[in-house]
Nucleic acid binder design. Structure first.
Length: 204
DNA sequence: TTCAAGATTTCCT
DNA sequence: GGAAATCTTGAAA
């Protein structure tokens, strides 16, 4: 049986978790069916000093509360009036660090995922390419916000590997979609992806 | 109470 | 390359 990520897996800074999550499996249970995807792209939001983070300067609101919760708690937010994005809280309670999941390769549940995406002629590799695409593909919405993925069976991480990938197979770049208002944080290299994956979103 | 902007995607020219 | 879709949040008034 594949081991599941426990509290200790998430009890680290966001940079460590962003790399550690690459190559692991995101599991979602909907209507008794399991969907699985291999994580191939992540971004770190490193806490109160990060001007690109919803928790910049310690801002705590009803929306981003999950970022401040226990490591392993899921932070789902709604944006652009139509999209959801999913993150995993990390570090320690009260320290709002989190990792955004930006892309997956589908491992299990292609049929269900294709229906959820509801898009004609889409390739397998594009099903979960991009943060809002993967939440749609996996049926992730605000009902999953703030759930504890260490305990929930609706959404959690399965460990397909013991360690983060070697540096030589990862690519590290600036994050996507960060506005100029974030200042130097716009250019900080806090995005990672697996070099060989065809499902990575944004610039390669 | 009003308003601008957003950790995006898709479709059009 | 550019704009539309669509609505919540947080800051300004």
């Amino acid at each position: 049986m594949t081991p599941r990520a426990g509290r200790s897996f998430f009890t680290c800074d966001a940079v460590t978790l962003a790399k550690r999550l690459l190559g692991q499996s995101l599991v979602r249970r909907v209507h008794g069916i399991e969907l699985r995807g291999r994580i191939v792209e992540t971004e770190a939001y490193v806490g109160v000093r990060d001007a690109a983070s919803h928790a910049y300067e310690g801002r705590l609101t009803a929306r981003n509360r999950a970022m401040f919760d226990e490591p392993g708690v899921c932070y789902v937010y709604f944006t652009y009036g139509m999209h959801h994005c999913v993150n995993f809280s990390c570090a320690t309670r009260g320290d709002p660090q989190a990792v955004l999941i930006r892309a997956l390769e589908v491992i299990q549940g292609h049929d269900v995922i294709r229906k959820l995406r509801n898009r004609e002629g889409i390739s397998d590799q594009a099903l979960c390419q991009g943060p809002a695409n993967l939440t749609k593909a996996f049926g992730i919405d605000l009902s999953l916000n703030a759930i504890d993925t260490v305990k929930s069976n609706d959404l959690y991480i399965e460990l397909l590997r013991r360690r983060a990938p070697r540096a030589s197979v990862m690519v590290n770049t600036a994050r996507i979609g960060i506005s100029a208002k974030a200042g130097r944080w716009r250019a900080e290299a806090l995005r990672w992806y697996l070099r060989d994956s065809k499902s990575v979103s944004g610039p390669r």
